[in-house]
Design a protein around this nucleic acid. Sequence first.
DNA 1: GTTGACGTCGACGTCGACGTCAAGGTTTAC
DNA 2: GTAAACCTTGACGTCGACGTCGACGTCAAC
Lengths: 138, 138
Amino acid sequence: MRIGELARRTGTTTRALRFYEAQGLLTAHRSANGYREYDEDDLRLVTEIQTLQTVGMSLDDTRPFVECLRSGHETGDSCGDSIEMYRRKLAEVDAFLTRLGAVRADLHDKLTEALGRQEIPSYIADPCVVSAVHHIRR
Amino acid sequence: MRIGELARRTGTTTRALRFYEAQGLLTAHRSANGYREYDEDDLRLVTEIQTLQTVGMSLDDTRPFVECLRSGHETGDSCGDSIEMYRRKLAEVDAFLTRLGAVRADLHDKLTEALGRQEIPSYIADPCVVSAVHHIRR
DNA sequence: GTTGACGTCGACGTCGACGTCAAGGTTTAC
DNA sequence: GTAAACCTTGACGTCGACGTCGACGTCAAC
């Protein structure tokens, strides 16, 4: 198949596929007119890359998996380097989760503190005025 | 104080401070020779920006807080817009945490699956060889 | 023979928060 | 008077994963 069909079948763009090729992740045979020709293995390779991207991997991170597929393995994660990359990414994600949890707590504290500091003037706390304001802001 | 001192006292760079000014977050008086002059309020404003950045806010997100400080409030989060921004960011962080949790689970599954698929050839499983390999890789 | 949908390559644009020059002016210390 | 340490503006570079555009070739259908 040609690049347009591969793009459609993988839900990406021709630009992305050419970019993968430029990064050395994807190689294409050329037909007589110079058009890129892909087979089903290439399709699997692209979907592998996409799957890995959804779990937080950069294009560069997908290299071991691509190499693994290229060397004839059935799946991209049958090789030691791929496993190692899984481990690295898992550790990264865990570290990020920890940090983000702390950020969330910090943010939550700030919000509740700010709400606590908020003095509510009586003329605003007045239900009549509140509904009026609400009406105006609609 | 001048820009260099403000940078030192806030632990940032002069470049960052000029950038904040270009973004309209920070305004400086100029002394006769054209040098920027800052006061303690500016220092508080910069630290406010930095604190907000650590909880995941972009420079643009800090605008309401900066405006709040500028309008004379004691803290940057005494205003409604700031509170609203806290809420938005908290929601964003929560959404991200959820997504990242799913990513982590996905990654963990992939790792265990790959490990399960890994057949361990006997010559590698052999403890002697294992220790030898370990020795070599050191 | 021409229209339209495909393909080619090359090169610059995007986003955010600055970093890193370059080429100069100002002030202080010796 | 000159060196060092500050300051000024302007402009281009960084990172990742492509988007977008221009100028052109290819192929099938009408």
